[in-house]
Structure formats: C-alpha cells, structure tokens
Design a protein around this nucleic acid. Structure first.
Length: 586
RNA sequence: GCCCCGGUAGCUCAGUGGAUAGAGCGGCCGCCUCCUAAGCGGCAGGUCAUAGGUUCGACUCCUAUCCGGGGCACCA
C-alpha cells in the first residue's frame, strides 16, 4: 500500500513545472511513511519539507504544487497539507478492502516481498566449537540467526544458512585428550585431571562409548602418559603448557590413526548433539562447513598464495604476517606462526573468500559481542584478496543473563555449571525460547526471565500472540457448531460495512505487514517482528472484545470473518518467521 | 589509551531526521447470563545520561564528557 503512495508522489514530482525543483534530488527523497496518528490520515510524505530549500520556496507552497500535480487515484479519498508542510494521504475504504482480499488470496505468501531483489546471502550463525553442548548464549545466536535468515528470505533474498564447524585446532585436540583421559580413568588409571581439560559430564559419556567400542586397547599406563610433562597450574606450572604436552604425548603414544579415532568420536558425538539440539529448536542449516575440509582441500594455502601474490605478506620474527594495516585494520596479523602452523585467522579469511567464490553477494556473520575486533581484519583480508570489504556484514549479539523471577541465575563456565540450551528449552518450551530470544534488539543485553517465559498468563507475550491466532480458529469452530460456513466471496464483497474504529484499526495494522517485513529485513531487526505481532494481537483482542463476529446478518458476519481470518493469516506468517508455532487451540 | 554496544516511565524495553516520545510489566479503578477473562477498557507515571553543535525540524546525525558491558593474542 505504501508503494502506491510512493508512486503517486513520484509521478507528482516528475510532473512539476520544469525549474520548480533543482535537477538532482537528494537520495531518500521523498519519504513516505505511515502516520502515527489517524487524524493525519494513513500515510504522510515529507517531500515538500525536504525540498523547499532547494526549490527556493516555502514548504507549504511546494506542498500545494505537489498536491496539484498528484495523479488521481480511486484508492485515495483525500489529501491534506498539514503542519509545517506534510502531505497527508487518506486512503479510500476500497484500498483496505482490496488489501484484505489480497491477504486471503496470498495466504502464507502475504508479506513476501521482492526488495532483496534476489541478492544471494549466506548467513553464518552459532558456529560454536564442538567441544561441548550449546549453552543459553548460543541459543540467542540460533534464534536470532534463524529468524534473520527467515526475514531476509521473506524480503526476497536467496538465503543460504551455514554452520562453520571448528573441527580442527587446539581446542578440539584438548577435547580429544579430555575424552581419552576419562577413558583411562574408566580403565582404572588414576591421576590428576588437567585443569585446562574439558570437565563436563558429556566427556565421561563419550569416554564410556570409547571404552565400549575399544575395550582396553587404547589404555596406557599413567606413568607413561604423564612422565616428564611440564607441571599443571596447581603444581606451580602453566596449564596451557601442560595440556598441550598431554595432547602431544597422547598423539605419540596412540599414533595418528588412533588419536584421530578418539578425536572423531568426540567430534561426532558432540556435533551430533548440537545438530539435534538445534533441530529440536527449529533451526536447520543448508550446510555444516568443516574447517578441516578447508585445509584438506588447500583453500587456506590458496588464500595465502593470493595474499602473497598481491604482496600483502611479509616475514618477521619467524612468522608470516598479513599487512592488514594497509586495509584499515589497526595492526598486522599473523597468518603462519613461527612454528609453521597457520592461524585461525588464516582459515577464516580462506573461508570467507570461499564464500565469495561460491557466488554470495552478502556474507552475513552473526557473532558474539566479544568478536567485534575480528570484523576489521577479515574485511581487510577480503579486500586484500580483491573482494569488496563491505560484502561482509557482521551482526553482533550481546550476552544473555538468565533470571528466575527476580533472581539472577548464576552461571560459570569454569565450574562447568552452565545452563544448556537444551535445559532451557525443556524448561520453557521451544516457542517461548524462540520468541524471548529475539524480543530484544541484538545490540541490547538480554535479561531472559524463565518464570515469565513459562507463565501461562497475560504477562507472557508468547501466549498473547498465539492466543490471537487460536481465538480465530475457535471462532471458526463455533461457526461450524452453529451450522454456518464462512463465505469468502460474500465477505470480501461486504468489507465496506466494516467501519467500526476497532475494524479500521485492525485493518491498518495488519496491512502494514509487508512494509514491516521490508523494514525489519533491511534493518536486520528480528525484534521488530515481535513488537509488530504484539501490536497486531492487541488490535485483534480489542476487536474481539468489542464486537461479536458471528452475527445473524450474513453480510456483516462474513465481512468480519474475512477480516479476522486475514488477521490470523498475518499472525501465522509472522510466527512462522519467528519459528514459533501458531496453535489452533490453547 | 584505542575500538564496539548500551544509558528513554518504578522495572524490562520499542522508537526508518518529522507532527503531542510509545509498549509490556508493576501501581490504582473498572468489565464475564455474550465467539476462550491466556482477554478488554480507563487513570497515574518522562530534564529521552550530561554539555555543546548541525538542521526548517534532533530521542534519532556530529563533537566532548560521565556511567555500565564487551574487545584490543604467533587463543579458538
């Protein structure tokens, strides 16, 4: 509907007498927006205010000229100039009526727009190291990333969802060592578990699987394992040196093949768990991209070669550095360490280059707020490799704090006492979790209230919105119980009868949905969908309480039913984007 | 020191440079013989952190300052 007004204003501006306006119009003009106050009509345009200066006239006079040049439209009933020079548009009832009919016709496609114009976007999110189960922080990433991807898709982007699996590197080696040490314990060995090892119960579970599969074949004596290793922190040493030595010893005692066997068992188990967890959360991916495969297929070497060819790599202190400062980063970055190992950063830029090579226009990464420093360097890497730096867009997600009632739930990763996503889902349910996670802007720290998320009360926005959907279904059941059926044609034909303020308000709100999708997608702002749905539910509940739908007058009845069915459709479409169910009954 | 995010009603938060700054919760007062009261209506509640600046117009943009969170690795 907004599009219609924009077209009208566009043609009016083009039809102004030559010389009225300077040749070049500033970008973003004219702006057409919904009015906040119904007294100002349905849409307002500020073109006269923005262009008056350049046109060397007063805003009111320019507004007069624009209005005079507006092409006639039977969907606009009235145009007013108000305030300092706003042009206010009052839509004709027919405009809303055709839009309601459009909602019913389009069904779940209502709100899908083409503004993304088929740009191909790859959205990478969660990508947690497979060293343990997902915790509540990852849950926010999952919900935010999945909803953002859905939004972009609705706005016409071609969207690919990807999880980058860090299945190489030191942390995974430490996990493998942790599993093996727990296995040795099961075999009867006794020793002090490294302070930097992974201590969660899941490690013991994987160790038990290892024991079941291998028996005592991989057992080595404690003295063999720990002999002459640098001391752990409690013994006055360095915990990193210690755990690295344990990994090294494990590799030499078991050999590469068996080391890999333990490693893969841990990786497979945890990754499978993460995958199942996310699936149960309604979060799925097109691809789980293996970091190891990057190295195996030479992608990292190719990226580094590309950097060298361009002359952006130099050697210093035995390491190889990428001249990131030449591309706006604050310092140069090591790509190959003194010991010959490629850094995590090297595989990162290789991965992002590979994303570009797969043809994606927009590389959208969802990362924790603590990763912000990483943006400039990957962008620098892309540019150095001849890719546009702004093809990478990073959305940072702030931290989550759990509350139970008014009490903050203490969490500590160190002690292993962190709450997992699975536990949270079991406690509050998938729908509440999905909605609560994206209720706040990603830039905002999130206080997640478990009691509120669980409460079956009017305080809980999940139920409030779902209830609106269920109520419409309930009305339809009542209709059937009374031996009546909804006549869509009759309803659409009679929409002109809906002149109650509650009906007007509901129509205005629900027809805003396509605009909301565009806006929320453009702003990468899933929380806008939640706020909108709450507003839509409010308009619906108010209507529900004010007027009966199942009335004797068939025309009025069918018209009202057409309206509430359209509202239900929009609620369902919105919940779909959020990954929240739309129940028929509560 | 440098970089990122936040500071808006008692609380939790919305607010694409526009008209009188909004919502939910909490507080107070009301509404079920009627399609689900998991609902609805009303009232009270604000120096938009502070000080400058840009603009016809600033919660929104710029600069500085204060407060809170996070980041500044040859870690992942």
């Amino acid at each position: 509907m907004k599009h219609l007004i924009e077209q009208l204003v566009g043609s009016a501006l083009a039809a102004l007498p030559p010389g009225t306006l300077p040749g070049d119009r500033p970008a973003g003009v004219p702006v057409v927006e919904r009015t906040r106050d119904a007294a100002h009509g349905d849409f307002a345009c500020n073109a006269a205010l923005q262009l008056a200066k350049a046109a060397r006239t007063s805003p009111r006079k320019l507004a007069d000229a624009i209005v005079a040049a507006l092409p006639p439209s039977d969907l606009v009933s009235r145009v007013e100039i108000a305030g300092p020079g706003f042009i206010n548009f009052f839509l004709a009832p027919a405009a809303y009526q055709t839009e309601i009919a459009r909602v019913l016709d389009a069904g779940k496609a209502y709100g899908r727009t083409a503004s993304g114009s088929s740009r191909r976007a790859i959205v990478e999110f969660v990508s947690a190291n497979p060293t343990g189960p997902l915790h509540v922080g990852h849950g926010r990433h999952a919900a935010f990333g999945a909803t953002l991807a859905n939004l972009l898709e609705a706005a016409g982007y071609g969207v690919h969802r990807e999880y980058y699996v860090n299945d190489a590197g030191r942390q995974m080696d430490i996990l493998a060592a942790s599993v093996w040490l727990r296995y040795l314990e099961l075999c009867g060995e006794e020793f002090a578990f490294p302070s930097n090892g992974y201590r969660g119960d899941y490690v013991r579970r994987i160790a038990a699987d290892l024991e079941a599969a291998e028996g005592g074949r991989l057992r080595r004596a404690t003295h063999e394992v720990f002999e002459a290793l640098p001391p752990d922190e409690p013994a006055g040493g360095d915990k990193d040196d210690h755990i690295d030595a344990v990994v090294h010893r494990m590799r030499s005692l078991l050999g590469d093949a068996d080391f890999r066997r333990v490693f893969d068992l841990g990786l497979g188990d945890i990754l499978g768990d993460i995958r199942q967890d996310l699936e149960e959360f309604g979060v799925t991916y097109h691809r789980w991209y293996s970091e190891r495969s990057l190295a195996d297929e030479g992608a990292i070497d190719r990226a580094l070669a590309l950097l060298r060819e361009q002359g952006h790599v130099y050697e210093q202190d035995g390491a190889q550095w990428f001249r990131a400062t030449a591309f706006g980063d604050e310092k140069d970055r090591v790509v190959v360490r003194e010991n010959g190992q490629k850094t995590y950063f090297a595989s990162d830029i290789a991965y992002h280059l590979e994303k570009r090579e797969r043809g994606f226009d927009l590389l959208l990464d969802v990362l924790g707020a603590d990763h912000h420093g990483y943006v400039a360097r990957v962008r620098a890497g892309l540019e150095a490799m001849g890719q546009p730096g702004d093809s990478l867009e990073v959305r940072l997600v702030q931290f989550v704090t759990l509350f139970r009632g008014g009490e903050k739930v203490q969490m500590s990763t160190r002690s292993g006492e962190f709450i997992t996503l699975r536990e949270l889902r079991r406690e509050v349910g998938r729908d509440a979790a999905r909605l609560f996670y994206v209720m706040r802007s990603n830039d905002q720290h999130l206080d997640f209230d478990l009691e509120l998320a669980k409460s079956r009360s009017n305080d809980n926005p999940v139920y409030y919105v779902q209830y609106a959907h269920a109520r419409v279904s309930s009305v339809l059941r009542q209709l059937a119980d009374r031996g009546l059926a909804f006549d869509r044609e009759a309803g659409v034909a009679a929409l002109g009868l809906l002149d109650d303020p509650h009906e007007q308000s509901l129509m205005r709100t629900l027809t805003r949905w396509p605009e909301l999708v565009d806006l929320a997608a453009a702003q990468r702002a899933p929380h806008m969908v939640v706020h909108y749905l709450r507003e839509l539910a409010t308009a619906f509940h108010a209507y529900y309480n004010a007027l009966p739908f199942i009335v004797d007058d068939g025309a009025v009845r069918n018209a009202r039913l057409a309206l509430v069915l359209a509202a239900q459709q929009v609620v369902r479409n919105g919940l779909e984007i959020l990954g929240v169910s739309a129940p028929e009954t509560m």
